[in-house]
Amino acid sequence: MDGIHDLGGKDGFGPVPVDTPDFQHDWERRQWALSEIAAAPGGTIDWWRHGIECMAPMAYLSLPYFEKWCLNEMAHYVDQGVFSTDEVLAGHPDAPGEPARSFNAEASLQFARRFNISYAVEMSTGPEFELGDEVRTINTPVSGHTRLPGYARGHTGRVVAYHGGHLFPDAGARGTHEGGHLYTVEFTASELWGEDSPDAVCIDLWEAYLVRA
């Protein structure tokens, strides 16, 4: 989606707030917990991410990070029919349920280890490209979710790593479990920004985003 979230290379945001203290509000810590241990059921990681991309651009740029997560959980719970919009606005369910089983610190620690989810997908065909190949990214507007950033479209880079099949986000955000060959492609800063520079940007890209250069 060619949305406001696609920030790479945009100008005008000023200096990085390097000195902002690491302080987290209590509500931020609690939202992190809610998103981890009580994430809206069903869906896919890419559909979840796409939800945030679909926020109004002004809200996207101005709301704190974990407030966006909060709104996104709410929107997904309503989308999936777990709660109605009215229940969310009231902050209480119409019909309370049985209290959930609680877990303690040690159980949380073990539970946290189980979040190392694999996104690898077995592929029935081999990869099109090899390490060292020159590839060019496609340059097509995308209305749905995609993980090909705007700044990297229509540019030529070199394949520096191959990671096997990974869940393809563009399909995942539409609810389809589909794999695609995943590569890391290195682009020189000169190619991306037209400046003489020794630097480079490495981007993880699926085969569907690439053509042979």
């Binding site: 509500w27 809610l34 009580a38 909060c70 229940e87 009231a90 902050g91 349920g97 049985e98 209290p99």
Partner: peptide, 19 residues
């Protein structure tokens, strides 16, 4: 906002406060 989400999830029995 976060309090509203937390109350919803706790009261519905989706997650426990202690967790």
């Amino acid at each position: 906002r976060v309090k509203a989400l937390e109350s919803l999830l706790v009261e519905k029995g989706i997650v426990a406060q202690d967790s």
